[in-house]
Design a protein around this nucleic acid. Structure first.
Lengths: 221, 221
DNA sequence: TCCAGTTTGGTGACAATATCACTGAAGTGC
DNA sequence: GCACTTCAGTGATATTGTCACCAAACTGGA
């Protein structure tokens, strides 16, 4: 994908028109990140806004005790507003963004960001929509963690992670970090799923055998 | 407090200067709400932005099973950005805002909001700071719910609710709805606090007796 | 002042989830 | 093949949530 095409992918409520795209690219710089690299975090506060052109950034939060939970993922065409929140935040927080795949992103320095927000209504809408989207995402996380059952959440996540495939490459520890729980809990629930014939497990891999059965669990309650 | 003075109270990272204040008031309308009224919710989506002049709005989320959790409170001088998120959201959400006290607020219609954001950098900063603040608030909620112990969270909340006093008027059910847990859980923890001499209870009221002891619990882990 | 109805809080039994302390099995790199 | 690491399984126990009650404390008439 050429760099000139990337804003085509900004889907959603506020796709950016050509003029805005051009102006954005004028002030922006493209960066590439390897999978696994930390994009931002408590020790690594960015001073500019990030727009994802290609790849996925996983935003997660860590507890003192070492447990993690995934808050949301930033996909191609979206911006990572938490970085701006981090810029403005005085308070402590412990969210961090990790490149889940190799990532291509456009970096927009703060002054250029301010100017675009001021002068381009379409860009403004885009940014506000991005913020709103993340707020809603976090509401969902709170709802899940506070009120959701772990088997339901795991079934949901397995289906989501599989995408169009029926295979997932993930350790129990990684799944635990998705949901903010402990490895042992995941092991036990997966074992239950196995015994019911819903999945098959090998070290580091899960095969979804009965998608309908998993969906039934994911949709319950 | 006269209406002309209210923006004086917009403290924080981006207090609004006089010119912005004047422009804001030109397009705005003041409303008053009784304590207990619903400010916004799934059935009651606002089409304008709200700035709190006086009072407190409690923003909480409800589960299907009837349990609640408080996400954050909007205090005088802050804006309620979740209303804008609600405007833009297509997805379902179940957060709602309730006037916790009698409330005075300024309502800013969408077009005026857009214009101010475009033309007043100070206003823009204020709005972005408000969004960031809420994102950070929600990160804290996620952290608490996913990783926090209930006794620690309750001790924290008791101290916060008491403010400068040592008295709280709240039922166990209300405290459970603060933390997103069940009444029985609160009853048991409070009973434990009582037995340890940290608090005294009467129907609907709690007196904090050993603030230091409570702080020790709140600060643990 | 008494009584019925409502709200609030207490309790035991049990279910779900988290923590801890292990064990062994499966992969990895000499 | 052998040490070494990573990954998964398991029992015991602690914490939290759910359910089904009961009793005490308030409320508002009659």
């Amino acid at each position: 994908m050429g760099i000139g095409d990337w804003t085509e992918r900004f889907q959603g409520t506020a796709a950016l028109p050509r003029t805005v795209r051009d102006r954005l690219l004028d002030s922006a710089r493209t960066v590439r990140l390897q999978a696994g690299k930390t994009v931002f975090g408590p020790d690594n506060i960015p001073d500019n806004l990030l727009f994802l052109v290609d790849g996925t950034i996983r935003v997660s939060q860590s507890s003192e005790s070492g447990r993690d939970i995934v808050l949301y993922r930033v996909e191609a065409g979206e911006s990572c507003v938490l970085t701006t929140a981090c810029m403005l935040a005085e308070e402590a927080y412990n969210a961090e963004g990790t490149a889940e795949t190799d990532v291509v992103a456009v970096i927009l320095p703060r002054p250029a960001f301010d100017r675009l927000v001021a002068e381009e209504p379409a860009f403004r809408s885009f940014v506000f929509a991005a913020y709103s989207r993340r707020l809603i995402d976090l509401l969902r996380v709170v709802d899940d963690v506070a009120f959701g059952r772990i088997d339901v959440r795991l079934a949901e996540r397995l289906i989501a992670l599989a995408g169009n495939n029926t295979q997932i490459s993930a350790t129990h520890q990684q799944l635990a970090s998705e949901l903010g729980t402990a490895r042992e809990v995941i092991s036990r629930v997966l074992q239950d799923f196995s015994k019911r014939g819903l999945i098959q497990q090998t070290r580091g891999h899960i095969i979804l055998k009965e998608l309908e059965g998993l969906r039934a669990i994911a949709d319950s309650t």
